[in-house]
Amino acid sequence: MNNTKNTEAERLNFMEKLYLPEIAKGLGLTMKYMFKPKFTRQYPEERFEPTGSYRGRPVLVDTTGGERCVACGLCSRVCPALAIEVQASETEREKERYPVKFEINMLRCIFCGFCEEVCPEEAIVMSKEYDIVFTSQEEAILGKEDLLVPEEQLQDRLEYLAEYK
């Protein structure tokens, strides 16, 4: 746009230069906004319910036959923040490898979801949990017992992964 009117005096017409009518207009606008519905979500009472595409706290899928994880260590390998530690061992079951130790340091985790993406067994997925609170650094390192979540609770995410991964 070729605007040759450079100074304030040139840009404004007489009514605008009087300021007051424009200020009254503005006051009218803010008054209108006072009666509009509010956007605030009152958090602890009204919670945000994420959809399947949400990347919350990473968890291990717990099926009826124990965890799906075979302790291949790919997640720990791909983790850019070095948050995951896996130690494998063997069992008598059909899937003979399982993790004796599976730790995620939630102070390191950046919720990138690479672990989930790289996992060949769909054993580690991102949950919907987003209010993750710790009172000490030790507490932030989640062991296997904290990470295992029943498969039923993760249905949304598993369906999402089935469709898009």
């Binding site: 803010t30 906004y33 006072m34 509009k36 519905p37 509010k38 956007f39 605030t40 009152q42």
Partner: peptide, 10 residues
Amino acid sequence: RVSAIIQLRL
């Protein structure tokens, strides 16, 4: 309070 309701907050 007034600033909040003008800005669609509570």
